[in-house]
Each structure stands twice: as structure tokens, then as C-alpha cells.
Nucleic acid binder design. Structure first.
Length: 154
DNA sequence: GCCAACGTTGGC
DNA sequence: GCCAACGTTGGC
């Protein structure tokens, strides 16, 4: 069992969007970074914990608790000529991009980025490091536990 | 909208 | 295989 932080731009898929999807789940399409792809393809297991993070928005931060709902499978958007995620070098026989499904466990009161930065226990969190841009990062169990115990309002 | 940081591409 | 140019991310 691993833990992850996954960024989504709320203008694309917000935690409220996720809550309204069938099964409160979404295919995590559009990842076009090899490191992030490899995390999904090689390491994620059904049931892994996910911090659902709102990025590139007015108040970035953790907006929900989610779980990995499927193992990775080819990202359909790479084959769709009308998608901005279309990849001419990918074929169904040799897909290049993969995604898992992410399922909401519960929406939480937003934990803003600047609050995350205030806690010494989280200062090594990968997503808080300077220059980090990865949309999917591993979360240490200690960090996960700290956040759920101390920062998620009951 | 700016721009620092980082990843990818492609010429050589 | 180097690295300059370019594109993207994402906080601010």
C-alpha cells in the first residue's frame, strides 16, 4: 500500500466534479510526463491512498482524499486526434501513456498549500520542494498519517 | 500574466 | 551524447 499526491487543475477536474462523476471516479488521463506515468504504470495498486490536490488555481491545496481505483491501462486520449493529449507516436499496439482510475473517498475542507508549508513534519514532502512540477508524487506514510490526523478537519 | 524551474527535442 | 532552444508547469 502506497500513498500519492495527484494534482488536478480544478478548471479541468475539481473535487466537486469528481464527486459528481459516476462512481465518483475518473480516468486520470493526460499525464505526459514519464516519471508520473511510471508511478501509475509500475507502482500504483488498487486501494493506494491519494491526496487530491488542486493546482494552478486561486488557492492551491489538498481538496480531497481519494484512492487508486484501478491499475494502469492505456490512456485513451493519446489515440484521439481531437484531443489536446493526442500523441502521433502512440499506437494501440504500442501505447506510450497510461493512466489509473482515481476514486473519491471524501471531499475535505481545503488544506491550502501555505498551510502545508507551515508544518515541519511536512517540509520534506516532495510536492513542496522548490521547483517541483511533477503532477504525481509519492507521499511518505508518515506524511500521509500526519495530514490525515492533524490537517483533515473532522 | 509573469517567470523560475524543469523536461523534451533535435541539430550537430 | 551534448546542449541550446523551446514548451510546460504552477505558484505568485
Amino acid at each position: 500500500m502506497r500513498y500519492w499526491l495527484m494534482k488536478s487543475e480544478p478548471s479541468d477536474v475539481s473535487v466537486d466534479d469528481l464527486a459528481n462523476f459516476p462512481g465518483q471516479a475518473v480516468a486520470w488521463y493526460g499525464v505526459r510526463n514519464y516519471q508520473a506515468r511510471n508511478f501509475m504504470r509500475d507502482q500504483m495498486q488498487v486501494g493506494d491512498g491519494v491526496l487530491f490536490y488542486h493546482s494552478n488555481c486561486k488557492v492551491p491545496g489538498i481538496a480531497g482524499i481519494a484512492r487508486v481505483g484501478s491499475v494502469a491501462y492505456p490512456d485513451a486520449t493519446q489515440f484521439d486526434r481531437n484531443s489536446k493529449y493526442f500523441d502521433a507516436k502512440a499506437t494501440p499496439e504500442t501505447p506510450r501513456w497510461f493512466n489509473v482510475d482515481v476514486q473519491l473517498v471524501k471531499k475535505i475542507a481545503l488544506i491550502p498549500l501555505d498551510e502545508l508549508r507551515r508544518h515541519p513534519g511536512l517540509e520534506r514532502m516532495r510536492t513542496l520542494q522548490r521547483g517541483n512540477r511533477l503532477s504525481i508524487t509519492p507521499v511518505d506514510p508518515a506524511e500521509w498519517n500526519f495530514i490525515l490526523k492533524n490537517l483533515v478537519r473532522k
